[in-house]
Each structure stands twice: as C-alpha cells, then as structure tokens.
C-alpha cells in the first residue's frame, strides 16, 4: 500500500526535516504517527498525500513509484487518499453538504448521482441537520466531522488524519477515534498523526515515532 525507503526531505537549502525514513503500511492497517511538535509529522503526511516530493529516497503509493508517476496521473492517486487536515480546510463560502460533496464533484459526478450518498454520510457522522450550514457557524467538533466526512466520501483506500482530535474535547475525541476504528474495520488503511499520548494509550496500534526527523517504529 505505502512504502517509504530512506526518504529524506528538506525545504530549500535548509536542514533535513526528515532523514532516512523507512516504513511500510500494509492494506487495511491502522498506524499512529507520533512525535513532538515540529518533529516532521505534517511534512511526512504532505509527502503521503503528494503535496511534496522527497528530496531523496523512494516512495511507493499503491504500488506506484511517485518519482516516476506523471503529473497527469496524480489526481487518480489522490482520489484513493482521504485527508483530514488539522485545520480542516473547509471552504468558507460552501455549505457543509457542498464541502463534503467536493471529492465527488471533482470526479464530474452530477448532483443527482452523489446527493443521496452525501446526505447519508452526513447523517452517519451526525451532521444531518447541519447540511446547509456554512463552516463559520459550525462548532469545532462539527467542522472536524465535516472534514472527516469529506475525507471518506470518495471511499479512499488510504485515510490520513493530521491531529484529528487536536481541537476537540476528550469525549468527542473518543467518538472520532471510534469512527476511524470503524472505517479501518471496513478495510481502509489509516494513518493518524497525533501527539496526544493519552489517546495513543487507548488503542493497540503500531506507532511511527518521529524525533528530529528520524523515524522509529514501535509495534
């Protein structure tokens, strides 16, 4: 599914923020990505959702070497990846429904084709009565759920979440984690970046720990 081999990353002429990072995510697995703030978690996720190219090393996504994949093939790969951003990145001028429907809209599906699925998913994440609300009037937890719904609406094979519980209270954090576990049970490969130690202790899943750019794997 995902393979990193000796991956290095630096921004411009700066120091390497990731050094010789190697790991493998098997299909249907759940992993946590941990590390202190500034350890490189977000950079690693950016490499995974193809927002960055590595300075060196080998990255394989869905059995394709990302270094040799033509730019025109990237949308097809990205459609297999769902991303939950730490800051949600919902579009302010669009309703919850429209934000969640975005991955289907970019696949040039008509509203009639995706409307029912999106409504059903919003019900599923508890936003059935907030479909026409703009992100500005949603609470932090509701925005988080909308972001998760957008990430999973395209039925991705790989789900990446950056600090998905960082902005919510412990009770909602536990509920969101339950959602990820359910998705994982349905076959989605999941990588959750978090530095919430208490959250990590509640789940028995392998941890990829980043420290000053180096990666250590705890099974």
């Amino acid at each position: 599914m995902v393979r990193f081999e000796n991956v290095g990353l630096r921004y411009g002429q700066g120091p390497e923020v990731l050094r010789d990072v190697s790991f493998h995510l098997k299909p249907g697995s759940l992993h946590f990505l941990t590390g202190a703030s500034g350890a490189g978690k977000t950079s690693l996720l950016r490499l995974l959702f193809l927002a960055l190219r590595p300075t060196r090393g080998f990255i394989s996504l869905f059995d394709q070497d990302v270094a040799t994949v033509p730019r025109t093939a990237l949308p097809a790969i990205r459609r297999q990846i769902g991303v939950v951003f730490q800051d949600f990145r919902l579009l302010d001028h669009m309703t919850t429904f429209e934000n969640v429907a975005m991955p289907l809209r970019v696949r040039r599906m008509s509203r009639a084709q995706y409307s029912h699925d999106v409504e059903e998913l919003l019900d599923w994440v508890g936003l059935g009565d907030r479909m026409n609300a703009l992100p500005a009037v949603l609470s932090g937890g509701e925005q988080q759920r909308a972001a998760i719904a957008r990430a999973v609406v395209g039925q991705p094979d790989l789900l990446l979440a950056d600090e998905p519980t960082g902005n919510v209270d412990p009770a909602l954090a536990a509920r969101l984690m339950r959602l990820f576990i359910e998705l994982n049970k349905l076959g989605t490969t999941i990588l959750i970046a978090t530095h919430d130690v208490q959250l990590l202790d509640q789940f028995d899943a392998p941890r990829l720990e980043l420290g000053k750019g180096d990666l250590t794997i705890h099974s």
């Binding site: 409504e119 059935g128 509920r175």
Partner: peptide, 15 residues
C-alpha cells in the same frame, strides 16, 4: 449512525 445527531432521514430536498 456512528455519531450523535443523525436521526434526520436523508432526503434530497434537504439541500
């Protein structure tokens, strides 16, 4: 529903 607040039945006229 996995999370709370999902009692409303889905209808296409809601959007």
């Amino acid at each position: 529903p996995l999370l709370e607040g999902s009692d409303t039945p889905p209808t296409s006229t809601r959007v």
